[in-house]
Nucleic acid binder design. Structure first.
Length: 790
DNA sequence: TCTAGGCATTCGACGAGAATAAT
DNA sequence: ATTATTCTCGTCGAATGCCT
């Protein structure tokens, strides 16, 4: 160590955790990298000149440090542009405005100065590098590995009797903190006999102790569950009320409550705040977590299968006042641990998403699907000497919003029960079409080749075979890399670190590939093209119809199909496998049909109205007896548990045992149980999301009435809030009789509503599909019953 | 402000016509 | 007997949440 010297050069092996530019530096951009090291962390600095591209002459302007002539592609056009660099990011907007006022179009001024830094350095914002550092300034870097992040999770409890917590009056009574070194503590303002509890004499002390722990334990990553929207903003506001500070940042700064496009986000300088709820939300939306309830319990159960201590969140104040405090401590601690475990499940995935999309971990966990695709495309454009197109202006967004086009083809099934069903689907259908037909926003309908060298879509739009477009070439690399990774995974031990890394990597690539089609039709996209989206779906409809036609002509009856799948009735499995070989031989390029599975039996139910079968509603059972229910009430959260559970049981009996009698009997029992009033309200709650501001509703449905009641009672209801209600007895509309669970008095439900509008609508279409009529089921027991028919 | 379109379903809003009440 | 009000029924569209 050159401690005595003026200069000192060192090598730092560090994993990038947090990036910004020094807020103290007003006239130059000093990039700050907070990197985690083997035994702590370091702050590294680098001077950078952010840039924009100008398509024209550039006069002398304040803040500009250099103007360089460069060759770039704008779409297909080769252009000589000016690469304009500025001293500090604050000049980017000013220079852009000054130039555009002179009629010079500018590009890439809004992709973020830190993103530009990483793009130009070829560095990943989530990567690990060996940095050669001179007095804290980065001189060189090269790829490295092996640095573990220190992770922690925390969860708070607030005393808020019968209302949403109000930071002016409701104190924080408990906080759990756990970390990757096995440290666990529960801070609370009451004495509790529990090994992990550290009692503190006041709420103010609790905040100070928590701050001390964060600073001493010094985690790189802090997981919370909904910390963006609740825990951390609440801690901050509450700390202000109490007059204490929360200097959790590694530069001594307070936690930062930021406004973003998607509501609030909370940053802690030098660390990564990972709001695990955001991850859960995203993973649920792409089907990677099988739950629609996004509370910590449900997500934990769906992911880990484990149960935790359960208490009613609304009753926390009661337990605090006069209940089992040990239970509350255990609950709070388990929440923090569950949050930690869920976060751990996805940390590597987001590190990889960050790598592919030039995003820090903090950003990566908060990015929408469109942002993920766009960042990936910006990166690939940069690699190909292409300039990213501008973002659309508001007026253009509105115009795009009005453009519509036709989507996937859905084959109407014949209602009924089927045996021996094979489900086949296209592997990554839309991405495959993009690659196979060179579908690209910059190429669509561009006359740069002879007519013979074009792919013409059924919708009429065409794409030249050459040159390869940005989107198709990017996606081709993405899919090829993914297949390669999946191949490597087969030879690895599932529990090995390498397996986990490669698995996360292929998952990240899958997410990027799957989001690419939707991005094209997203009105705010830089690479927007409704024509491309339309061409893709038109090809997709042709391909799936071709598969159906070919299957039929080879004696495999088509039962159903949706967008990229076909359901075939088969006699022998080999026939299906032979068909797969045959069709894949015919399919061009990357297109490939795969076997999803064989099913023993399946039911396609009638619609509530009319004789025809519903689309997107069916149930299958495989050879091992696993029931797969799709689109039916069972999978919908806006149906009560009693209706959903009854439907599941009926399907199980019908498909699994083939026992319709037992199913009818079961429904009768449920109806009787409802009539007797013995049903627990938990089974009756209907959950509905409030999707807009309460005063914006044209139609005031039950969930809106319930939301208003909650609001009057002191609960916070915003777009995104999920309200739960029970329909009670009485007169008037359903809305008038709907009571929020929070305000419900015991036993006051309307059995008739639950029988006629919940349980029976969920099961009658099943029986009707099997040939029974409604009256067979609902007529009184004294008359002839369903059994007489069987 | 959260990639796309396709689909089933429920419930409230609303209007027409019937039933009932008021004059 | 006429008119005003309430009730009933059917249609339509808003709203939600699913599927791929």
């Amino acid at each position: 160590m050159g401690c005595g010297n003026f200069y000192y050069v060192e090598e730092v092996v560090g994993r990038i955790v947090y990036v910004d530019h020094d807020p103290e530096e007003k006239e130059r951009m000093v990039v700050r990298l907070f990197v985690a090291t083997e035994d702590g962390w370091k702050l590294l600095r680098d001077v950078y000149h952010p840039y924009l591209f100008a398509d024209g002459e550039v006069p002398k302007l304040e803040g500009v440090v250099s103007v360089e002539e460069v060759e770039r592609f704008l779409g297909l056009e080769r252009r000589i542009m000016k690469l304009v660099r500025v001293r500090h990011p604050k000049y980017l907007q000013r220079v852009k405005e000054a130039l555009e006022a002179r009629g010079v179009l500018c590009y890439e001024y809004d992709i973020g100065p830190e993103v530009q830094y990483f793009l130009e350095k070829g560095m990943s914002p989530t990567g690990t590098y060996t940095f050669v550092v001179e007095n804290g300034w980065i001189k060189e870097f090269k790829e490295a590995g092996g640095v573990e992040l220190r992770r922690a999770a925390l969860d708070i409890e607030v005393y808020a009797p019968g209302r949403s917590p109000d930071h002016e009056r409701d104190p924080v009574i408990m906080v759990s903190y756990v970390d990757s070194d096995g440290f666990e503590v529960v801070l609370t303002t009451k004495e509790v006999d529990h090994s992990k509890v550290m009692p503190v004499e006041s709420e103010g002390r609790l905040f100070q102790e928590l701050t001390r722990i964060v600073r001493e334990r010094d985690p790189d990553v802090i997981y919370t569950y909904n910390g963006d929207d609740f825990d951390l903003p609440y801690l901050k506001r509450r700390a202000e009320v109490l007059g204490v500070r929360l200097p959790w940042g590694r530069d001594g700064s307070e936690i930062q409550v930021r406004r973003t496009a998607m509501g609030g986000a909370v940053a802690i300088r030098g660390r990564v705040h990972v709001d695990v709820y955001r991850i859960a939300e995203y993973m649920a939306s792409i089907g990677a977590i099988a739950t629609y309830k996004l509370d910590l319990e449900s997500v934990y159960r769906a992911l880990k299968g484990g149960e935790k201590v359960r208490i009613n969140r609304r009753k926390i104040h009661e337990i605090w006042d006069s209940g089992d405090l040990k239970l509350l401590v255990e609950y709070n601690l388990q929440d923090a641990k569950a949050c930690f475990e869920i976060g751990e499940e996805f940390l590597e995935l987001y590190t990889e998403i960050g790598r592919y999309t030039v995003s820090e971990l903090y950003e990566a966990v908060r990015m929408s699907a469109s942002q993920i695709v766009e960042r990936k495309l910006i990166r690939e454009a940069h690699r190909r000497n292409k300039v990213a197109p501008k973002r659309p202006k508001e007026k253009e967004v509105l115009r795009r919003l009005r453009e519509t086009y036709v989507g996937g083809y859905v084959h109407e099934p014949e209602p009924g029960l089927y045996e021996n069903i094979a489900v086949l689907d296209f592997r990554s259908l839309y991405p495959s079409i993009i690659i196979t037909h060179n579908v690209d926003p910059e190429l669509v309908n561009r006359d740069v080749c002879s007519e013979e060298e074009r792919y013409v879509s059924p919708a009429g739009h065409f794409f030249c075979r050459e040159p390869r477009g940005l989107l198709p070439s990017t996606l081709e690399e993405v899919l090829k890399e993914r297949f390669e990774l999946k191949r490597k995974l087969k030879g690895l031990e599932r529990s090995s670190p390498e397996y986990k890394l490669l698995y996360a990597r292929q998952q990240a690539l899958k997410i990027i590939a799957n989001a690419s089609y939707g991005y094209l039709a997203f009105p705010r996209a830089r690479w927007y093209s409704k024509e491309c989206a339309e061409a893709i779906t038109s090809w997709a409809r042709d391909y799936i119809k071709l598969v159906m036609k070919e299957a039929e002509s080879r004696g495999l009856r088509v039962i159903y199909g949706d967008t990229d799948s076909v359901f075939l009735r088969y006699e022998r499995k080999e026939d299906v496998l032979d068909f797969l070989d045959y069709i894949n031989e015919k399919l061009p390029g990357m297109m490939e049909l795969e076997l999803e599975g064989f099913y023993k039996r399946g039911i396609f139910i009638k619609r509530r109205k009319g004789e025809r079968a519903a689309k997107k509603k069916y149930a299958l059972i495989d050879e091992r007896g696993n029931l797969k229910i799709t689109g039916m009430e069972y999978v919908r959260r806006d149906w009560s548990e009693i209706a959903r559970e009854t439907q599941r049981r009926v399907l199980e009996l019908v498909l699994g045992e083939g026992d319709v009698e037992a199913a009818v009997k079961y429904v009768r029992e449920v109806v009787e149980r409802l009539k007797s009033g013995r049903v627990d309200v938990d089974e009756l709650v209907i959950y509905t999301e409030i999707q807009k501001e309460l005063d914006e509703y044209e139609q005031v449905g039950p969930h809106v009435v319930v939301a208003r009641k909650l609001q009057r009672a002191g609960y916070r209801v915003r777009p995104g809030t999920i309200v739960g209600y029970v329909v009670t007895r009485g007169t008037g509309s359903v809305s008038e009789r709907a009571e929020p669970v929070e305000l419900l008095k015991d036993g006051e439900y309307d059995p008739d509503y639950y029988i006629e509008k919940q349980v029976l609508p969920a099961v009658l279409p099943i029986f009707e599909t099997l040939g029974y009529t409604t009256s067979d089921l609902v007529r009184p027991a004294s008359q002839r019953s369903l059994f007489d028919f069987v």
